[in-house]
Every structure is written in structure tokens, then in C-alpha cells.
Design a protein around this nucleic acid. Structure first.
Lengths: 211, 211, 211, 211
DNA sequence: TATGAATGAGACTTCATTCAT
DNA sequence: TATGAATGAAGTCTCATTCAT
């Protein structure tokens, strides 16, 4: 009902057949994102998705091969958005820990605006493992470039290549668990991450835990 | 067939009625652990579990209220085992970073011996959220005590109580992601975590990332 | 409703669990035979079969792996019955053409009593090809033995082994097409084959077409 | 891809609207014949047919009322071709058994060149019963004329009109079953019928089975 | 308490047909 | 007349749970 309205943007005057098709596809992906975000992959039935998208069940199969197919495409679809958001949010000129902090904040900011994304990302390891692996590949690669530049700038020292990769996993892990624990209020609704958590994270990165 | 035999230990001569019942219950939990460890919660059907346990489907409901019920009890059942293992593995007298490193190694060691545990733990957030939350509560509490003692010993400084909790999440996160990435070989089989990964982890904890 | 009554025989006082299971299986096969006989394999849905058998749809899958599975088992189930009927109907002591004529009549007699069998047999080539091939293998083998004995008795001469097999196919073909054309009245209901048809068949076998 | 090319003949320079329509219709029929020949009626979806014909799904309904409609028209379309082939293949001046043998060979020859025809014909009894009946009516009528002439020439004697019809069914049956059994190699590909089979068939027709 | 057959809701998917462009 | 996206009915199959024995 009114739920749909969020997905249906104001349509431009005339849509060619092809545009309309693309739009339907987008509608289905957005609907799937919402359903998975709210109920999880396991509960994301074609019926729910198509109903939310406002199309018939059969229409679904004009755009995706199977239920698994759209689940596999969900994380790439959202993941690209997230990476774009982070890239665009990162102020120019930041370096060192400040740059890393900005990155973290941008991630949490995206999560705050797209409350379903955490679940889409987290459950993907179980329900869309290929997509999850690919998403991680991209994330790790991006991160590696960033850390390599930091090493080149002399901001990081004492870690060889392999160790840096392990560190990246630690950083991604921290992001994820912090989101899991702190990025929602008592009722489970999305919310901003408390400042002291970011502070703790930054302290670990700048001076370690054991002084 | 022979799969069952692992679960069926040599039975003591005579089992009282109550003992037999406890034994059946244990059988079901072990079977569920194996099924979930191998196939995941989503694929863990009552049929599979009871077949592996060697009892009829109906028998299941004499011991658990529902499918969800046993799934909820799985992580506590296994989690206790893991914590015991870590506690028993920790050498006396270690302190500071060395103690933390030993804890980490003990965790990976448990994972290596119980390859299914990672999946039981990881997927629990999705399929047994209550149990997952409770497991985390216990983990965090134990960790907090450990860190508090480290603080008292002067090994850690500069973190207030709330920050320490955030750090704990970072530590647990790191464990988990490292396990996800490094605790299995190319074929997905369980294996030991490479030394350089543990080294990187320890470096972060002792001197931070940005020097 | 009343349709079911035909399948449900008077039950013996007490059925053990296993007997009851066998009975349910029989019920399903009989129901499938009736449905396929009336509507054809293509229209034989699980819903129709289980409804006629008086069990829930899910029950079906306790006895057969799939829809195809029961379709594959239908012809063997009915075919055995038919062969038994022919074997029991054949009077002792007949030989030569008279024996062949008796065989033919027994076949048509079975068809008259089991009107659905023709369709089950005919459509099997399309919908249950394995079963159809196996059925033919059995038929041909039985026929070959019969013809070999006729050769041994001197009733047939001038055909080598390979030619005899081809003749068998001609005989089976004739049976089948005669059934298709003559074993039903104008309304498609089963009925006896006219005498002149059997006469023509026998004439061909005894003196050929071209005198 | 290249599959279509077989159906699309070199088009004459300019097609009038009506010619183009006839051509599309022919394309659809040929495509249907290929699909049914390969996959059977049951698997002959509109999607497959139109794709092979190279037209949109909707276009189909400008030429045929329904899926069943084209299936009903398939056998008449192909059957006419087959009868023409047999008529043209029959050498002049043959009579008696030799003429019948030539007819049989012409039939198998057609089958060899149009491997899909057997399936179109055979399955038609199930999926296009009206067309099948009509096809048989035409076949029987043609055959009756031929046999009547043979009777008039004194080549056949001792069969009255009704019996002759039954014989015709036997002959058609033999054709069909021989095709089913012998007109394909081990892999199911079309192939010529072995000589000994034709010989056996002719022996039955000329001297009967029981000497 | 153990058994295992029976249940039925609900999921995914296919596909002939319609219809606006 | 051609297009191809949209439709929705209908079918197969799974599985947690119940219950009579």
C-alpha cells in the first residue's frame, strides 16, 4: 500500500518500453532490498518482493532467473551504492588516522541512512556466498590501496604486505561488529554510533591496546 | 550409517530411564550440531537431525518444543564447550599481550578441532538471534573481567569502561573475521591460522596501526 | 466422493502400521491408474491423484519420490497384472494359430475390463519412456519364447531369429492399433473388439495378405 | 542462432503484405515441427516456437488462435508432405506385394529424411487427437483405394470390406512399430530400417506366419 | 516414551495468453 | 501487423508438526 510509494519515484513524462523495463527491474531490486533488510534473506519470498514492487509474481521471472538470482544481485547492487557513498563522503586532503576515521564515519553514516544494508551484507555470507566473497574482494582491494598509500606516505610502518591484509580484515571486522552492536537503539532501530565507540576504535589504531 | 557411530558412545551397562532420556537429548544436540555445522541452520531439517541421531521424527518433540527450540539451544551447548576449552588452554601466569595472544590461539585451536563451530556461531545471528545475543553477553562479560584485571595490573591504560566494551567488540570481531578468512584452506576445509596473521593482530594491539 | 469407493476395499479388521502403509501405496497407484486412464499422463496432477486416493498431497511424497516416479511405476504395476491375466486366460493345450488367437482375445479381454490400460500403455512411450521400453522388453521376450516353441513344434517355418523379432513387433503393433481403433465404441467407451477384426488378423497370420 | 537459418529461405525481392504473412505462418509451422520433433508436444512452448521462428511471442497469436491450434495443424501440415512423398516415390507399374513393399520403403525413406515426423505423428494421438484421427482417416482411405484396386486385380482375395479395413490397421500398425523399434540407432538418431525387417514384414504379408 | 505415517500450508516456478505501444 | 512486458493460474514439492498406535 503506502509502502510502495517510497519505491515509486515521480515518473518522467514518457517512458520508452526499454526504460519501463529497466524501471521494473529497479523496482524489484529495491523491493528485494527492503524485504531482505527487514525480514532477512530467508524470509524474502517472491510473493513479498513482487507485492512490494507492485508487479505480478510472474513478472519477476522476466527479470531474474530465480529467487537466488536476485539475492545474488542484491549485495552488488547495494554495495556499489555504499562504496560510492563512502568515496564521495571522504573529504579531500585528509590523511593518516583522520582519513581512516572519516572512512569509518562515512560507513556508519551510510548504514544510518540505509538501515537494511547491514542485514543484507551480514546475511549474504550465508545466503549469497558468491556475492559476499566478491564484495569482500572489492572492499579488501580498495582498502589495500588506501593502506599502501598510507605506507608510502610514511603513516604506517612495520607491517609487511601479508600482515597488512590481515589488518584489513581486522578493520572490516571491527566496522561490522561495531555496527552490529552499536548502530541500533534498544528497539533495534537504526541509529548513530556513539562517539566513545569511534574514539575507542581510533585509540586502538593509533596506540594499540596495550600501551 | 557409520556417521552415527561418532555420536553413539559406548553406553554404560544399564541406563536408568532418566539417563537414557538425557542420552537421547544429547544425541539430538550432537546431531543438530553436526548438521548445522555442515549444512547450516537453513538446511537443518528435523528429518536430517533425527536420522543422524538414530531416532524417529516424533521422538524429537519429546525433547524439544520445536525446530527453533533446538536451534536456540545449540550455540549455548557448543559455546560453553568452547569457553571451557579456552579457559583450560590458557597457561597460568601469562599476562598482558602474551595472555591475549594465548587466548586467541586457544580460540583458533578450538575452531580447528570443531570445524562446524564457526558456522554454528556465525549463522546464529540470523537463525538464533536470542542465543547469539546471549552468547555475546557471556563472551563480553568474560572479556571485560579479563581486561579489567589487565587494567588493574597496569597493562592497559587510557580507556574508560565504555571504551573498553567497544574494544572488546573489536577484539571479538577480529577473531571472527580472521577465522572467516584464514581458518580454512582453499577448499573450505578447516585449517590452522597462519602465523603472520596472529602477528599482525598482535602488532595492532601492542602498537596500533598508525605509528 | 463416491469415486473413491471403488478403490477402498473392505478392510480386514486390523491393519498393522506396515499393512496400512502398503495399502496407502496401493491406493495411490490405483488412483494414479484411474486418473491416467481417464485423463492421460499430462493431466495427471498430484492433486487429482491424492484427492482420488483420499489422502493429503503431502502423503504422496511419503510413497513416491516425485510425480514422475509414480508415472514410471504405473505401467509396470498394470503391465504385470495384464500379463498375469493373459497367462491365466490361456487355455492349456492350444497350439499354433489357435493359441495366438487365444492370446489376442485375452489381451482384448483385459482391455475391456481395464479400460484405462490402453492409455497408460500408449502414452507411456512419451511420458514414461523407461517403463515403456522395459515393458516392451518383457513383452517381446515372452513372445519370443512362445514363437520359439511354435517353431520347435513345426508350426512356424521360414523365419530366422532376427526376422522373428520383427514379426513380434508386427504382432504387438497390430494388437495395439486394433485396440486403438476397435476396442471402443463411438463415444470412446471401452467395448469388445468385433469378431471380423480378429478374423482378419488371423487370416493375415495364417495365409498372408497376398495369396 | 544458426538454427533459424534453415527455416529462413532466401526471400524473393519484394514480398507483398499477404505473402509476408503467409511466410510468417509457414515459419511458425516449420519451427513448431522442429520443436515438436525434437522435444515433443509437451515441451513445445510458444516461447520456443516463436524464438526459433524469429518472431515475437505476441506475433504468434496473429496466426494461430492458441497453442493447441498450431499443434492441431502440425500433423496435417506434415502429413500431407509425407503422403506426397510416398505418392511421388512409388514407381509406376508396380503391383501386388512389390507395390506394398515400395510403399513401405517410401515411408521409411521419408522418416529418414524427416526425423521429427515420427514423434509428431506418434504423440499426436495424445496431444492432437482430432488431427490424429483425421490423419488416420486420410491414410486409411488412401490405403483402402489401393487395396481395392489390388482386389480388383486379383492380387488379394478372401477378405471382405470390413476385414480389409482391419488389415489396413494392421499394416499401419506394423509400419509404426517397426519405425519405433528399428528406424533409429542405439543413440536414438534416425537411421535406415534393416533389410531383414522389411523381409520379415513381406513374408508375413505373402505367406502368413503360420505356414 | 518411541514411532513414523499423515497433514497442509506455503514456497518456487512455468507458461499460455493479453494488451498497450 | 509486430512487439515483448505483464499477468496469474496452476503445478510440483518441502517440511515442521501432529497423533494414533
Amino acid at each position: 500500500m503506502s509502502k510502495q510509494s517510497a519505491l515509486h519515484r515521480q515518473p518522467p513524462r514518457r517512458l520508452s518500453r526499454e526504460e519501463k523495463a529497466r524501471e521494473t527491474r529497479r523496482l524489484l531490486l529495491e523491493a528485494a532490498a527492503e524485504v531482505v533488510g527487514n525480514d532477512g534473506y530467508a524470509e524474502a519470498s517472491i510473493a513479498k518482493i513482487t507485492q512490494l514492487a507492485g508487479v505480478a509474481q510472474g513478472t519477476f521471472y522476466n527479470y531474474f532467473d530465480s529467487r537466488q538470482d536476485i539475492l545474488d544481485k542484491l549485495l552488488p547492487y547495494m554495495g556499489r551504492e555504499m562504496l560510492d557513498h563512502i568515496a564521495q563522503s571522504l573529504p579531500r586532503g585528509l590523511a593518516g588516522p583522520a582519513r581512516e576515521e572519516a572512512r569509518l564515519r562515512a560507513f556508519f553514516d551510510y548504514l544510518d541512512r540505509h538501515p537494511g544494508f547491514y542485514r543484507i551484507l551480514y546475511e549474504a555470507e550465508v545466503f549469497a556466498p558468491k556475492a559476499h566473497a566478491e564484495h569482500f574482494r572489492v572492499l579488501v582491494e580498495g582498502y589495500r590501496n588506501a593502506l599502501d598509500r598510507a605506507v608510502a606516505r610514511g603513516e604506517i610502518a612495520g607491517y609487511d604486505e601479508d600482515e597488512l591484509e590481515a589488518v584489513i580484515y581486522v578493520l572490516l571486522a571491527a566496522r561490522s561488529y561495531i555496527a552490529m552492536r552499536y548502530a541500533r537503539d534498544e528497539k533495534g532501530h537504526a541509529g548513530p554510533v556513539p562517539e566513545h565507540v569511534i574514539k575507542a576504535y581510533m585509540k586502538v589504531l593509533t596506540k594499540g591496546l596495550f600501551s
